[in-house]
Design a binder for these strands. Structure first.
Lengths: 126, 126
DNA sequence: CTTTTTGTTATATCTATTATATAACAAATG
DNA sequence: CATTTGTTATATAATAGATATAACAAAAAG
């Protein structure tokens, strides 16, 4: 699974890493038990600091996506609980589209489309 | 329309104001042409600084939700264009739910439910 | 026309966040 | 034991968030 960093993005680097790993898990590319590169390895690959990667891993661990162990590196967790503010964030995002005049049906279709691109071909064990 | 500020939230104050106004527009409580309180007025009501409110209004203007004029104050705009990164933000949010094991159907139902709470009773002109 | 209100602009300060740079420590692997 | 790795600790720099004043200019109200 490839990760791309945009240093000039307004989204913090550690957040970019976090989001892409979350998406990798969602797509089924990162299955539970999958090992991720070590902090120092990832930092070297991206040419960024060790602590920036560490921050992303720490966040992912707090959110229940990863378990970080010594020497073994980070390992994808079987499951977690959805963040309590998830629905509030969804609400804000959907409100934004409604406020710009997008019909609710059109918004739903977009949700469906995005979900489809995330779940298509997600069964690598066949 | 009431706005609530949580000073201790990790979400910036100007973002809280922005989000609640956007939701107000989405719900139809703030119709195009509706005037909003002046920057100094809102700041006084919340007991916060003038520039914090100004930042929220500036953001809302850049996003096409408001038009800010002298003396008239901020006025809700008829419409705008959806931000280019909207779908990317939706993608990240939906991926988070999928990664935590929520089935796509369940996620869609939640989207539908949230949309319903935003669009119910949205026609004040009857 | 004068006064007042309002958005705008300009500094300045303070805190927190983001990112980097070193360094050292401790646990686990080979 | 030596190496790798996560962890912890400082330190620094840049940026963002919030506050505090002050002043300016446009527009409404008197």
């Amino acid at each position: 699974m490839l990760i791309f960093i945009e240093p000039e993005s307004e989204k913090p680097i550690y957040q970019q890493i976090r989001d892409q790993i979350v998406e990798g898990i969602a797509r089924g590319e990162l299955l539970p038990g999958t090992g991720l590169p070590s902090i120092r390895q990832l930092a070297a690959d991206f040419g960024i600091n060790l602590h920036t990667v560490n921050k992303a891993y720490e966040l992912l661990e707090r959110e229940g996506f990863l378990q970080v162990r010594r020497k073994t590196g980070a390992v994808v967790q079987p499951r977690g609980r959805l963040a309590e503010d998830w629905e509030a964030r969804l609400r804000t995002l959907l409100a934004e589209a409604l406020a710009q005049g997008l019909p609710a049906e059109e918004i739903l279709v977009r949700c469906q489309r995005v979900l489809a691109t995330l779940t298509e071909r997600e069964q690598p064990d066949r």
